[in-house]
């Protein structure tokens, strides 16, 4: 490529986002950066994300993951992100700790499936769904850092739009992201 062109056209940072076992609350919070979205799209372009509806992730600079890992599909998506993103960020309580979905961890998944599909009240001729299209649930819900390497964590349930904005702008500017006390206060 011509050196002059390289200076003239500064490539945008590619960002991918996804929600695994989460509630999309973190994505909603992301949208809460409001008009700063316009500033953001000057700097970044989105790859796979609920915002673009692109189904698979290509090579990216930043991946944002909401939600923990509760089934086999979550694992595949997470691995795809790790393979393609230079920097992977866990965003929100579920991604970091398992969060609300992990409340099922004290129950045996086998007994849950049996009760819901076979032995529960009003179930007749029940069957545990076994279509190969369906992802199988893991026996436990895990935070994403137990499955792949994670580079950064943005805590909160959900983190505020301001926190997400501060974190991303730090990252884009080459500063080690740092959320000060006001952005980490939740009460």
């Amino acid at each position: 490529m011509d050196a002059m062109d390289a200076v003239a056209v500064k490539p945008k940072v590619r960002v991918a986002t996804t929600s695994l076992a989460g509630c999309f609350g973190c994505h909603m919070s992301f949208l809460d950066i409001d008009e700063r979205l316009l500033e953001l799209v000057e700097l970044v372009e989105f790859d796979r994300s609920p915002l673009t509806d692109i189904k698979h992730c290509g090579p990216c600079d930043i991946g944002l993951i909401e939600g923990g890992v509760c089934n086999s599909e979550n694992v595949h998506v997470l691995r795809e992100f790790r393979k393609n993103c230079k920097v992977l960020i866990a965003i929100g309580a579920c991604a970091i700790n398992g969060g609300l979905p992990a409340l099922r961890n004290s129950f045996d998944i086998g007994r849950c499936l049996q009760e819901v599909y076979l032995t529960g009240l009003n179930v007749e001729n029940g069957q545990v769904p076994n279509d190969p299209e369906l992802p199988l649930p893991l026996d436990q819900v895990h935070p994403i850092h137990e499955v792949v390497r994670i580079d950064y964590f943005i805590p909160g349930c959900p983190p505020s739009g301001d926190a997400i904005w501060k974190f991303l702008t730090d990252l884009l500017a080459g500063r080690t992201p740092r959320l000060g006390h006001p952005l980490l206060r939740f009460d």
Binding site: N130, L136, H142, V148
Partner: peptide, 20 residues
């Protein structure tokens, strides 16, 4: 990096119940 638990093993119960 390696996961902190056996991923394939964590599907064992679901595999058994669905017969897949």
């Amino acid at each position: 990096f390696e996961p902190s638990f056996d991923l394939d093993e964590s599907l064992a119960t679901s595999r058994q119940l669905t017969g897949r």
